[in-house]
């Protein structure tokens, strides 16, 4: 297994280079270094000298990919792409365009992200699986059909509706929790109730429907019929037989998300004022802060690759027949 993991990690290098190249190209197609300078310097009294000065200070005064004035390898290394993107591989994220240390910001912000994402993830999976198993138990009945209808309806509603509706009802009208905010000290939980509730409710439709499909495939297998024939209760059949056998597809969809929980959620964090990495990314896009965008995309790619490797490893735990080689 060790060799397999090493091989997968090595595969990750060209993927990360590709992701970096793509992010860099897309960002600079939309924003030139001059645009970034103007965005940082403000709209008034911006002189060409000020723009040049800003570019020089922040390392944007070089060619993007190829330096025709340089010789040898420096044609490639004396460029913005090399300066800004390649050093990410040494986990040197540098400073944001406004001068803050990105590593320090990421380290601070990942905890609020995790504080929301982790309970949403755990409670969400638990609720979705329980609901799906219950619906499977009544497969073919009106209860099942009603539940599927409800799932599709829940899926069809925009995530924004859940957020704004939740804020309007729970926080504004009923005044049960703060509408937004986050304070690490003191009663953190009261800021988490609503975003977690919204995250879980918004995910029930799609999640439970997907799990129902997975469980139904297993519910018609011979071993289930055998278990039922030998007198096992429905709960035992569902939780002891069907659930473990449906784990492989569940793990495929779930484990890959675990590392990404650190990255938080763009919408939830923005609307609920959670100072996590999701809102960090969104702010960076809005303020054209390429240093943060490229770092966050890089971290996101690494976490996703890590998630895929963890998924593969989890298969061996869920199904002893699986061997990684």
């Amino acid at each position: 297994m060790f060799a397999y993991i090493v091989r997968r990690l090595l595969y990750a290098i060209p993927i990360l280079i590709g992701v970096n190249l793509l992010t860099f190209t897309l960002f600079f197609v939309v924003n030139s270094p001059d645009d970034m300078a103007v965005s940082q310097l403000g709209d008034k009294y911006v002189t060409p000298e000020a723009i040049e000065n800003w570019k020089q200070k922040n390392g944007y005064d070089k060619p993007l990919f190829l330096n025709p004035d340089a010789a040898g390898l420096t044609r490639l290394t004396d460029t913005i792409f090399f300066d800004k993107s390649v050093r990410l591989f040494a986990f040197d994220f540098g400073r944001s365009e406004s001068g803050r240390d990105i590593t320090s910001d990421v380290a601070t912000r990942m905890w609020p992200s995790l504080a929301v994402a982790l309970p949403t993830f755990i409670v969400g999976i638990g609720v979705n699986i329980c609901v799906a198993l219950m619906v499977v138990m009544f497969h073919g009945t009106r209860l099942d059909r009603g539940a599927v209808f409800l799932f599709v309806a829940l899926m069809s509603i925009s995530y924004l509706f859940y957020i704004i509706g939740g804020q309007f009802l729970v926080a504004k009208t009923w005044r049960l929790v703060p509408i937004s905010g986050f304070h690490a000290e003191g009663q953190v939980w009261k800021f988490l109730i609503l975003p977690v509730l919204v995250g879980v409710v918004a995910g029930i439709g799609a999640g439970a429907r997907w799990y129902r499909t997975l469980f139904l495939e297993e519910a018609n297998q011979d071993y289930v019929r055998t278990a039922r024939a030998k007198g096992c209760s429905e709960l035992t059949i569902l939780f002891r037989h069907i659930l473990p056998n449906a784990l492989i597809p569940i793990l495929t969809g779930v484990v890959v998300l675990i590392p990404s929980l650190f990255m938080g959620s763009l919408l939830i964090e923005s609307f609920f004022g959670i100072p996590g990495l999701g809102s960090y990314m969104l702010d960076a896009i809005n303020s054209q802060d390429f240093a943060i965008v490229r770092s966050m995309v890089f971290i996101g790619s690494i976490l996703y690759i890590l998630g895929l490797i963890l998924t593969d490893i989890s298969y061996t735990w869920a199904d002893p027949r699986v061997r990684l080689s």
Binding site: I164, Q167, A171, G273, P275
Partner: peptide, 11 residues
């Protein structure tokens, strides 16, 4: 820091 108008207005 208040990013969203609904939150700001409600508070």
């Amino acid at each position: 820091l208040e990013k969203e108008v609904l939150s700001l207005w409600t508070k």
